[in-house]
Amino acid sequence: MKIDLQGRTAIVTGSTAGIGRAPAEGLARAGASVIVNGRTQSRVDEAVRQMRAEFPEGVISGIAADLSTAKGANAFIAETPAADILVNNVGTAFLRNYDGLKDIVAIPDRDWLGLFELNVMSGIRLSRHYLPRMVSKGWGRVVFVSSESAVNTPKEMLDYGMTKTAQLAVSRGLAEAVAGTGVTVNCVLPGPTRSEILGDYIAKQAEEAGITLEEAEQGFLQALRPTTLIRRFATTDEVANMIVYVCSEQASATSGAALRVDGGVVRFIA
């Protein structure tokens, strides 16, 4: 299968590193003009520099904006008013040591609200701007990068899991709203992945315990994701492969779906 996205403009939020950076590169490799996003100008500039070096024939640009706020989203939109592909990837999680109910009830309002603003509202704000323009053109792709935590609620990250479940509801509702228009909306659900956030957390655990990175990853899986079938962390490129595919012309019959790249962690057949 050859995915050709020449002539398409793709936005990937939170794409200076990790799970966002890999699909930004994949979309550029497929010929799309790619807009990189991050919170700080320095990180955006460095990501654009690296991607331009890797794809000298590509059209790569960047916008620094904090998409957890309406002001940041509006500033982003002002710089790029139209796009064919929107990958709502930006997000984060608070990785905590879990010791039962007392830790759940201790999560402060600012953590619940902060994660919701970044993980959920960023995608809502951008989608409600770009989706109508895609519909008017008769073609478009919107992808929310959710998580297996959306359906496999993690007690140790309940606030994060809540936001990922919300993304499923939003993406399905938007897909139904644009039915029959040539625009698709989907969710991709990664499992444990060697991303910047989780990778740094695991590296710190390995250093503190005096073990290898692989041993720390295996300890994480055995303790928190024992149902994994691949028995390892996924790579960001493996997640990106699904995202790039669902952005393609070949994925035109896939919409309103929750597409898992979770290594089999979730014990669902469907």
Results as ranks from 00 to 15, higher is better:
G114L: 12
E25A: 12
G100Y: 15
W112E: 14
R52G: 12
T228K: 00
A47T: 09
P56C: 04
M134T: 10
S127D: 13
A24K: 05
G140Y: 02
M134E: 13
N88H: 06
D111W: 08
Y130M: 11
A257S: 15
N119R: 15
S248M: 07
G20R: 01
N186P: 10
V145W: 13
A169T: 06
V183F: 01
A30W: 08
E25M: 10
S33W: 02
I243W: 06
G100K: 13
Q222S: 11
G263M: 09
Q41Y: 02
E117M: 07
I63S: 09
G191K: 02
A257V: 09
V261C: 15
Q167W: 06
A240S: 12
T227V: 00
F94S: 05
I77R: 02
A28Y: 07
P190M: 02
A258W: 13
L221E: 03
V239K: 10
G62H: 09
Q41G: 07
S136F: 00
R232M: 06
S149H: 11
A32I: 00
T235D: 10
L174W: 06
G182L: 01
Y245I: 01
S171H: 03
M51R: 11
Y98D: 03
G7Y: 12
S255F: 05
N241T: 09
T165R: 12
S127H: 12
G26W: 05
E79C: 06
R49V: 00
T69H: 09
E208C: 01
A82Q: 05
A209L: 08
N241S: 14
G38C: 10
T181K: 03
A257W: 07
A203T: 14
N89D: 07
K102S: 13
G199K: 09
E148S: 05
L101R: 12
R110Y: 13
A17G: 01
G199I: 11
T236P: 11
A22C: 00
L86G: 05
T227G: 00
A150Q: 11
E46D: 15
G256F: 12
T228S: 14
D66N: 15
V120I: 15
V59N: 14
G91A: 00
S33P: 04
A64N: 03
S68F: 03
G58A: 13
I230Y: 04
A53S: 09
A206Y: 06
G210L: 00
K204M: 09
G138T: 01
V178P: 11
R128I: 15
A216I: 04
I63E: 03
Q167H: 05
V183W: 01
A206T: 04
K155L: 12
G140T: 01
G256Q: 13
G180S: 04
L213G: 00
M121H: 09
M242F: 05
D4P: 14
